[in-house]
Amino acid sequence: MDLRIFIVKRLLLMLLTLLVLMTITFILFRIAPGDPVASMVSASLNPGARESLTRSFGLDKPMHIQYLLYLKNFLRGDMGQSFYYRLPVTQVLRPKLVNTLVLVGPATLIALIMGVLLGALTAARRAGKLDLFGTVIPLAIKAVPPFWTSMIALLIFSYRLDWFPSAGLRSPGHAADPILEKLLNADFFHHLALPLTILTLHFLAQPLLTMRNSMLDVQGEDFVEMARAKGIGERRVIYHHWIRNALLPVASIAPLMIGAIVGGQVLVETVFSWPGLGREMVSAINGYDYPVAQASFLIIGAVMIGMNLVADIAYAVLDPRVRLE
């Protein structure tokens, strides 16, 4: 199959997944406690305002029309009005999305690179045996929930040693508005260090283990021996023949990693009071701010579906065999 056809097929699947996600959201929020109007319109507004909002969201119409309206509004970027902030949801969530991305983006990137490198290194150094950095630490990290590691990190590095701040994105009074100024200062990095480290540790455990494992599998393969027999330098054998082939299983665990990223993000943000999408979603649900909860859920889902698509295409490029399926 042509790579282009493969990509088109995956894109269609992505749209279908998005539609399913939106449908699930629609159904879940319609059966949420309270009447259907409550899912979009705050109960604390005066009756007149309530009525006009109800009408503008079509909540007085039959269910199937409501559904179509909901899809249409979402595609137009209109996700309703936050009950709590009394602002359009998009306006509330845009900065939160940025905050999440500056935390999760670097963590994912560092974790992928370090995970692959450490996996390759520990495998090349010490074939087969249990070793501290190759198995023991990554396994221990994989065996605990990210929120617990965050709590322990707070306990040690923030409360006991007082090296890092315990919450938030910047110190109070440290308000800078232009985005670059907001992100490129020492205070921000000071706040970022701990959550970033924890997230990176959690994201890198799986690629490290998979890489190490697949390095050990590949080392005995004939083509590695063949490359050696041809008299290619050991360095070239490792980089061009060994690591390259060992990378495939790492690409294939992408869905696993993406799941870990989404879950880890919500938990770590909650513990470190990081004002991102995940924490906002938790507090919106607890505060019955349905429009915000609904929109943040959909945004997280859409980002996840997008990441899956990228991973799929990357895998198809790396291993042309999948395209034949």
């Binding site: 699947l13 992505m14 279908l16 997944t17 998005l18 399913v20 996600l21 699930i24 959201t25 879940l28 929020f29 869905p255 799941g259 989404v262 879950g263 919500v266 938990l267 995940g278 979603m281 938790v282 649900i285 909860a293 609904q294 943040s296 859920f297 997280i300 889902g301 996840m304 579906i305 899956n308």
Partner: peptide
């Protein structure tokens, strides 16, 4: 499609 559902947020909702 099921792999496109973010589990923890889905569970919360």
């Amino acid at each position: 499609v099921a792999f496109g559902i973010p589990f923890l947020p889905f569970a919360m909702v």
